[in-house]
Design a protein around this nucleic acid. Sequence first.
DNA 1: TATATTTGTAACCGATCGGTTAAATAACGA
DNA 2: TCGTTATTTAACCGATCGGTTACAAATATA
Lengths: 86, 86
Amino acid sequence: MRRDVFQAIADPTRREILGMIAREKLNLNSVAENFPVSRPAISRHIKILTECGLVTIKQLGRERFCEANLESLNQVSEWIDQYRIF
Amino acid sequence: MRRDVFQAIADPTRREILGMIAREKLNLNSVAENFPVSRPAISRHIKILTECGLVTIKQLGRERFCEANLESLNQVSEWIDQYRIF
DNA sequence: TATATTTGTAACCGATCGGTTAAATAACGA
DNA sequence: TCGTTATTTAACCGATCGGTTACAAATATA
């Protein structure tokens, strides 16, 4: 299920998650600790972020470390840049 | 009702509308002609775009011309730019 | 082996989304 | 004035969203 980057970053929680793991790789529990929502909710957010390539997962034992992969944001900035001519 | 730019551009139809009126001001009917959805649907899309500042309306008689106001996109590009350091 | 830890999945819920059709409002043209 | 044109609003609909709790699965640890 190929996801849309525009839709992925529309949610403020997902943008926060991206900002958080852009600084350092974190496993899912560590990410979830920082939000007032449940772990399954964070799990689904991260799933959406991986489905559009913004996050990649490195499994280490039972832990899954989330890494930001921000090249996909170019899809957005390129779309914006086409209007920068004006 | 202050709208979120990220959420406004998440919808592909709204992005198309923006691209269309970035080239030239168009009244609502002219915009709607270019899409396979009804006029009321386009009307609501444009309302959302105005609510976050991406579109401004100039009323001329009974027609309302839609003008793209793309400075609000800076909110998005600035958010992306903070990661360009990496 | 038994238990604790990390995570994903399923089932559900209320709110929002994007669409529709029908009716209301307002301005133009004959 | 009356009909046409441009647009918004209201009421509705099914799908999706973001959240929850409960449970399953897999790995680490005592």
